[in-house]
């Protein structure tokens, strides 16, 4: 029996909402996929598109950016900037040949532990279906 593919997903989470939300999922003892490797940033607005590219190049099979719901950003409007940057980046990634399911922007509040778990499970399942990305090798060889 072949071992099931375990994708590696990098998650950029804002400190105030999504990181706390993930914390909440933990305190609530919610079981969910262990595939997202979290990098904490102060605000989703800190996420430079080059971080996402870097993650894919370093071998990530998926990248998740999560922040406060629009209107709830701890810094008033940081996530509005994210909201403008990330769709642009998504288009670019598609042109690079990276399937849309591998990059995701989500809003998760500090109270939404269950939602965080659901987002992670969904994304893990999607990327699992898409299989390994291997952009690392791909980039090197062309």
């Amino acid at each position: 029996m072949s071992q099931e593919f375990e994708p590696k997903i990098v998650g950029f989470l804002c400190n105030w909402c999504s990181y706390s939300g993930a914390d909440m999922a933990g305190t609530a003892r919610i079981q969910y996929a262990p595939n997202v490797h979290i990098i904490r940033v102060m605000c989703s607005g800190r996420v430079d598109p080059s971080f996402v590219l870097k993650a894919f190049r370093e071998g990530a099979d998926g990248v998740l950016v999560a922040g406060c719901h629009p209107g709830d950003c701890h810094y008033t409007a940081g996530n509005y900037k994210t909201l403008r940057r990330m769709p642009l980046l998504a288009k670019m990634l598609e042109q690079f040949g990276i399937e849309p399911g591998r990059f995701r922007l989500e809003w998760v509040s500090a109270a939404e532990g269950a939602r965080w778990a659901r987002v992670v499970n969904e994304m893990t399942a999607t990327v699992q279906k898409l299989g390994p990305l291997n952009w690392k090798n791909h980039v090197r060889h062309t």
Binding site: V41, M42, C43, G45, R46, V47, D48, P49, H74, Y75, G78, K81, R85
Partner: peptide, 8 residues
């Protein structure tokens, strides 16, 4: 406040 929006 240190949000980092300008940095990105």
């Amino acid at each position: 406040k240190g949000c980092g929006v300008c940095v990105a």
